[in-house]
Computed example of a mutant assay.
Amino acid sequence: MLSEQSVPVVRATLPAVGAAIGDIADVFYRKLFDAHPELLRDLFNRGNQANGEQQRALAGSVAGFAGMLLENPDERADVLLSRISHKHASLGVTPDQYTVVHENLMAAVVDVLGDAVTPEVARAWDEVYWLMANALIALEARLYAEADVAAGDVWRSMEITDRIEEGAGSVSLALRPTGDRLPAPFRPGQYVSVRVELPDGARQIRQYSLSAAPGRSEWRITVKRAGGDGRPDGEVSSWLHANARKGDVLTVSAPFGDLGLAEHDGPLLLASAGIGVTPVLAMLDHLAATGATRPVTVVHADRSPDHHAHRQEQLDLVRALPDARLHLWYEEPGDLAAQASTGRADLSGLELPEGLTAYLCGPEPFMRALRGDLLHRGVPAEDIHYEVFGPDLWLGRQ
C-alpha cells in the first residue's frame, strides 16, 4: 500500500508517467545494457528487445501496478505479478538484480521527464518501484522454496532421449535428468526454460511448455521454429532445430508457470492455436492418465493439418476421454480435415456448460477474441486463464 504522502503525488503524475512510459522503458534498457552488457547477452531475450515487445511489457506492468495501488489499495498484487514472478524464477532472477534495475529505471525516469521529477515525485515513484520489486522478490522466494532450490539455482543438465518431428516446423524433445534422478514434478500447463550457447557466445534463454503429462520418467518439450512470414528467425528455436539431437545434453530450468490445470470435477474449455497446443496436450494427457470423467471442450485453430503439431496425438487423447469434444479450425483444411471448420476459431456455435473453467493459449489476437466471447457469454473473468508465449502485453490493460 502506498503511503499517504505518495498517493496524491502518484495520482497527479501517473498521466504524465503513463504517457512517457514507453520512452522511459527504451531509455531504461539502453542504460541497463550499457552498464551491464552481460544481461542482454545471457539473460534478456534479444529478439524481444529488438522488436520492442519487452519494452511494451515493462511499460504495461509498471503502469498497471501503479494504477492498482491507486484504485485498489487494499488488494494484494499477487495476481497481477504472478506471471512475472514465474517468468523471473524460470530465468533464475535473484533479489540483488532488482537494485540494478532500480538504479537504471529511476535514472531513465529523470532523463525522460527532466525537471518534472522533483524530489517529492522521485520519492513517490521510488516507493512504487520498491513495492512492486519487494512483492516480486517475495513471490519468487516462495517459488524457489516450492521448487526446493536456492534463489536463482534453477538450472539442471538434461539429456535428450528422443527427437520427433511434429508437423511442419515443430520438433519434440524428450528430456531426462543426467544421473539417476527423476524429473521434478510439475502441474499440467507449466513450462521450463532452456538455455543454449549460440555461435557468438551468448547464452540465450527461452521458455517451452511441457507438452506431456507429469509423473513420467521423462519430460517433453515441443519447439516450433520461430520466424518466417517476414519475421526474423528465432535464435534459440533455430539452434535447437539445427543442433539438438538424441544423446545431447541441454541446460534446463525447474518447471514454473501460473497456468496450471485446476484439480476439480467441473467442465473445462481447453482452447489453443498454433504451438499453443503444447500446454493443452499436457492437460489432456493428465486427464486421460488419471481417468478423468469431467466434460471437456477442446478447441484448436491452426494454419493447416500439416502445421498442427501433435495432431494425431491430440485426436487420440480426446477420444480417450469419456466426455470430451474436439472442434478444429484450419485456415487451409485440405483433404485431411473434412471435419474441420475453415477460418478462425469461433465459439458462438458451441454449447458451453455452466460452471466452465477455460484455459487459453495461442497468439494474443486469438486469446483476446475468445476471452471476449467467453465474457460475453457470462463466464466470469476469474475462470478464464491464459498463457502467453513471450512478454505479457496484456498486463495492465485487461
Rank of each mutant, 00 (worst) to 15 (best):
S3E: 01
L43W: 11
V17A: 03
G114R: 00
R30E: 11
R83G: 14
A59G: 07
S85D: 10
A16C: 01
E4C: 10
D126T: 12
S61H: 04
G60F: 02
Y129L: 05
L105A: 07
Y98R: 08
K87G: 06
L105D: 00
W130F: 06
L113K: 01
G18F: 02
D115P: 14
L39D: 07
A89Q: 07
T118M: 10
N134W: 13
I84W: 03
L58S: 05
V7R: 11
A63P: 01
G92L: 14
F65V: 08
M132W: 05
L39M: 13
L32T: 02
M132N: 02
V117S: 10
E4R: 13
G114H: 01
D74M: 06
L32P: 00
L40Y: 09
A63H: 03
K87T: 07
L81W: 04
D26L: 13
H102K: 09
A63C: 05
M68P: 02
G64A: 11
K31N: 13
V10K: 11
Y129A: 03
S82C: 09
P119A: 09
V17I: 01
G47W: 12
T99Y: 12
A124R: 02
P73Q: 03
L39K: 08
W125E: 03
L32A: 14
S3G: 02
N134M: 15
R76Y: 00
D96C: 13
S6E: 03
V17L: 02
K31T: 02
R56W: 09
D96N: 15
D115Q: 10
Y29R: 04
G92W: 09
V112A: 13
L43N: 12
G114E: 03
H102I: 01
D26Y: 04
Q97C: 13
Q54S: 09
V79G: 12
D42E: 14
L105P: 04
V62P: 07
V128S: 07
L69N: 01
D96M: 09
I24S: 11
Q55M: 06
W125L: 08
A57F: 06
A57W: 06
M68D: 06
T13G: 09
L39A: 12
V112H: 10
H102D: 09
V93G: 10
K31Y: 09
S3N: 01
G47M: 13
H36W: 09
V121W: 03
A63D: 01
W125K: 05
L2I: 00
R76S: 14
S3F: 06
L2H: 04
L32W: 02
D78N: 05
L91S: 11
P15M: 01
E75M: 12
V110A: 15
P37Q: 10
L80R: 08
A63L: 06
W125V: 04
L80P: 00
M106A: 14
H86D: 12
E103H: 14
D111L: 14
G60A: 10
N134D: 15
N134Q: 13
E120L: 04
N48I: 11
A57H: 04
Q54R: 09
V9Y: 06
L91Q: 07
E127S: 08
Q97V: 12
F33P: 00
E38R: 07
N72R: 15
V110F: 09
V93I: 15
V17Y: 00
L91P: 08
G18P: 00
S82A: 15
